[in-house]
Design a protein around this nucleic acid. Structure first.
Lengths: 332, 332
DNA sequence: CAGCGCATTGCAACCGATTGCAAGTCTGAT
DNA sequence: ATCAGACTTGCAATCGGTTGCAATGCGCTG
């Protein structure tokens, strides 16, 4: 437990500085000293205390990873990617589960107490102001899956949700659906609103289209299912853009209850292309979001911020594309 | 960023000790001093550096959370519960993603470098020796979902997997399945082997049963699906115990490919009772594992270990029960 | 008013490291 | 043999807090 620099120094018969230096990259130590120290260190099972050293170096290698989405299976993929990408670079994810909180104050305070080197806000629902609060508190921050902007206030990595909305509308139209609908995530989610905006923008170009919209209570299976069940009570549209794969899968379940076949009776197109959407039993036509690249790029950005904290805020927007599967009828 | 104790002390016109004391529970400070300090602290936006204080107190409130399962959706629920339970108690989860690693050495070293107060190994596949390595290195540890034992070497919280195997076999038999099979997780997973053992134990009591077994490559949808597809090539059994819900769901997908109806043509019983199993389109009969209680209890145990590090290792085993849904035919 | 006890306060050492600086050592060239 | 210059090394200050100890001040009692 308590084997420290001093113990190693004593055993190796050198000063504490010498020990410290053998463990820091590029410090000046002779081969002889180094080997004495390494031998002593191994003998005692010493490994340097990262937190103590952070005091003087000002670097903890801790990265706050903040999310509010623990009900959408896509986020398991997201966590997997993030934790691995961070680890590979010697950074440590400190998780903040934001469920039931929308104010950044607490998270900011907490992450500052732990002197995180940077924070990643991984959420498609939180507004830019949330991430900005970290920036304002002096914590370098990247908002992954955040709202894209031409002149962002903080670093943003993600997709152009407005464009995805347009893309979905174009796709539905290209397949001959006339009465189309948007089934989005919660109204207070930036991604839900942006996709909505794009969708409507595109629709309005085409007077032959009839459009409707609704918003689920959350990005979750249950919410998607319930919303679609409600729609089926009234006169539903012919084709829907569901603002997320998990909503789509919930909606598919509702269709199945009513004996409706997706792709035949009603069209569904999702967004994300999560693992589950590829399952044969789901086989969801969807807009692919390049999660892995987005995450890698986010972590790259974190590393660059650590080198240059005053880096000018940047938006890295990745293109999406439609993945053809079975829940939309063929193009005309 | 850099507002410290000293700054607050200077502004408030008191010593650094006084400031420190107003921020530590149960220290002796007069009301007057306290209010001066609090005023100054607010003015400067001061919050104490948790890592610096950990140096002298020996407590970081960091808890290592180690897992190797980022492909089973149940783990999103697990992470959600864990991170919330820890946060509620003022503890911070430091995640270790163990994908592709089976040796504890690296994780142990890393978590010691960050002086975590304790570690939680959340995995049903890792052997007891894995958690033991933390214990041996002086890091208090709880193995959640670990192998139960009557005299465990480290704290274990979870279920009795052997008993679950028996339960599944009894259940299949009670429904009149004669040729039954075990479709387990990977052979090197302790849970897969324990469930197997219980299953076989029960089966051997009943000469009328004919039994087969196989092991999927992972606890994942794809692995379950592939394994079941392979089984369907030969002469499959009438009813299967799939060692986990996600394997079951993969298996269901394979059945569907072959036009087989679960519960009618072939019976399936899973284990976990994850959210997805309740979806109408899945409707999986399964053995419920009380995840939430297990996690709460694990975090309780962590707190108790912090108070008394030499606490005698304990196994907390929670009972499971069968949840009747649609993938097994009715009891006779 | 003296004397006592207690609560409050500041000093200074310490937690486990890093690092600027000056002193010491070694090398090789002259 | 001498010396410049480059390496090594240890000292001591520092990072941001905590805490034992002694000193101070206070209110009370007698």
């Amino acid at each position: 437990m308590g084997v420290t620099l001093k113990d190693v120094a004593a055993l190796a018969g050198v000063s504490r500085s010498a020990v410290s230096r053998t463990f820091t990259e590029g410090a000046s130590v002779s081969a002889k000293t180094r080997s004495k120290v390494e031998k002593a260190a191994k003998e005692l099972g010493y490994s340097p205390n990262a937190l103590a050293s952070s005091l003087t170096t000002g670097r903890t290698k801790l990265i706050g990873l903040i999310s509010n989405n623990f009900h959408n299976p896509i986020f398991l993929e997201v966590f997997d990617q993030f934790t691995r990408a961070l680890q590979e670079r010697g950074l440590r994810p400190l998780i903040v589960n934001l469920t039931d909180e929308t104010e950044p104050a607490n998270s900011v305070r907490m992450l500052r107490q732990y002197s995180v080197d940077a924070a990643i806000v991984a959420s498609s629902t939180l507004p830019p102001s949330f991430a900005k609060a970290f920036h304002d508190a002096g914590v370098p921050v990247v908002h992954t899956f955040g709202r894209s902007a031409t002149s962002p206030e903080v670093h943003v990595v993600g997709i152009d949700n407005v464009e995805c909305g347009r893309m979905a509308a174009r796709e539905l139209r290209a397949r001959g659906y006339k009465r189309i609908g948007y089934l989005g995530g919660p109204k207070d989610a930036t991604s839900a609103m942006d996709r909505y905006r794009g969708f409507m923008e595109e629709v309005e170009k085409h007077p032959d289209l009839e459009v409707s919209h609704s918003f689920a209570g959350a990005y979750s299976f249950e919410a998607g299912r319930e919303e679609m069940l409600a729609l089926l009570e009234e006169k539903p549209a012919e084709g829907y853009f569901c603002g997320d794969d998990i909503l789509s899968i919930g909606a598919l379940s509702a269709l199945s209850d009513h004996g409706l076949k997706p792709g035949k009776d009603i069209g569904i197109i999702g967004l994300n292309d999560m693992e589950m959407s590829r399952w044969e039993s789901v086989n969801l036509t969807t807009i692919h979001q390049p999660i892995k690249q987005i995450i890698t790029s986010s972590v790259d950005l974190v590393e660059e911020m650590l080198k240059d904290p005053d880096r000018y805020p940047e938006a890295r927007i990745f293109p999406c594309r439609v993945i053809e599967r079975g829940t939309l009828r063929p193009r005309l």
